[in-house]
């Protein structure tokens, strides 16, 4: 297998006395969906925030291999820098621009790839390439028909779709998806699962998800976190059979969905 595009090494994040993430190592590869599961409070979202740069790690390293195979140390980098490197994320709590139109949300996201910030007299609506990127992202998540609505007018599930579309519009190589299916209806979930499958061949995807059916449907690799630590990692079937995992997590949830 090719070298990992994003590699976390012994990452730690402490909030006061609490070790939210404790010595986690993880690799993301292009062409692979890596699912991360664990009970609430296991540190999954904190780990995402470390990888995206929203939070600086207390210790440990984050290494990124860009499209030209040049390595970068991302620990302590700012989120905007990471985003421009090609690491896109979606938020667990919907984090879209509610007063803007659905299209403007995506257009703004796409604009970030073409920073012509200093052409201050040209209307932002007149960049055809940016508009195309935004339209594509909306179509990919199934929101093309909603483009002119205000984001605030969307249903909760649709806002979740928009959240992912915005991430896509930044043309990332690495996608950090924090519970993308939470709050979505059956049909929307199917759209997003199909989308993740379609993206998988040329993206590296970290998928945090409580929906076990979805996880086992798309993931090639599965990591289980409990209390800030990785207790198992490997092929999904192999991890599912791990007695530690059964006891700590799947045991009491087996066959059902976790809230």
């Amino acid at each position: 297998m090719r070298e990992a595009v994003l590699r976390a090494e012994n990452l730690c994040k402490r909030f006061g006395g609490l070790a939210a993430v404790n010595g986690v190592s993880l690799e993301l590869h292009i062409g692979q969906v890596h699912a991360l599961i664990g009970p609430n409070g296991a540190g999954k979202s904190t780990l995402t925030n470390l990888l995206s740069g929203d939070l600086p790690p207390t210790s440990g390293g984050i290494h990124y291999l860009d499209a030209d195979q040049v390595g970068h140390d991302l620990a302590g980098m700012h989120p905007d820098r990471n985003s421009r490197f090609g690491i896109g994320r979606s938020y667990q709590k919907t984090n879209v621009f509610l007063p803007f139109s659905v299209f403007e949300n995506c257009r703004l996201a796409a604009q970030s790839r073409q920073p012509r910030a200093w052409r201050i007299f040209r209307s932002a609506d007149h960049y055809a390439d940016v508009n195309v990127m935004a339209e594509r992202a909306l179509a990919a998540v199934g929101l093309a028909g909603r483009r002119d609505l205000l984001a605030a007018a969307l249903s909760h599930g649709e806002q979740r779709q928009l959240e992912i579309a915005m991430c896509l519009a930044t043309q990332p190589r690495v996608l950090l998806l924090d519970e993308p299916l939470a709050g979505m209806g059956q049909q929307e979930s199917q759209t997003i699962i199909a989308l993740i499958r379609r993206l998988a061949p040329d993206h590296a995807i970290l998928l945090i998800e409580h929906d076990m059916d979805a996880v086992f449907a798309v993931a090639q690799r599965l990591t289980v976190m409990v209390n800030g630590e990785v207790i198992a990692s490997g092929e999904p079937a192999e991890v599912r059979a791990n007695p530690l995992v059964q006891q700590a997590y799947l045991g009491d949830e087996h066959g059902g969905r976790h809230g």
């Binding site: 989120p79 905007d80 820098r81 938020y91 984090n95 803007f100 996201a109 920073p115």
Partner: peptide, 15 residues
């Protein structure tokens, strides 16, 4: 965008 949600703007790659 910054006025509305600066954190999100940074996550989208804007310095």
């Amino acid at each position: 965008g910054i006025k509305t949600n600066e954190q999100r703007m940074r996550a989208l790659g804007f310095p």
